[in-house]
Amino acid sequence: MENPFKLIEPDADCPPHLREQIVSEIDMIRNALKVVELYTGDLFGAFSAMLADSAETPPANP
């Protein structure tokens, strides 16, 4: 006897336009993450370079 749970599964297909929507949203998420990574990475780099600079500079004589 066939499992009735398998028989009640709908046979509709996923709308084709959904693929484009999802792929473009994934691209958008990826790009947003790249921008965040770029900015935070650069900011961190600039901040650490600034700290290194100030540590290397000898204090001015009075």
């Binding site: 599964e9 709908p10 509709a12 996923c14 959904l18 693929r19 792929v23 691209d27």
Partner: peptide, 24 residues
Amino acid sequence: TQRNPYFEALYTRYCDKVYRKCLS
């Protein structure tokens, strides 16, 4: 690689199945 074609291949395999579950 973060390349879309790999994701799209997975999507093609499973989109109908996932959609049908949501419809249920």
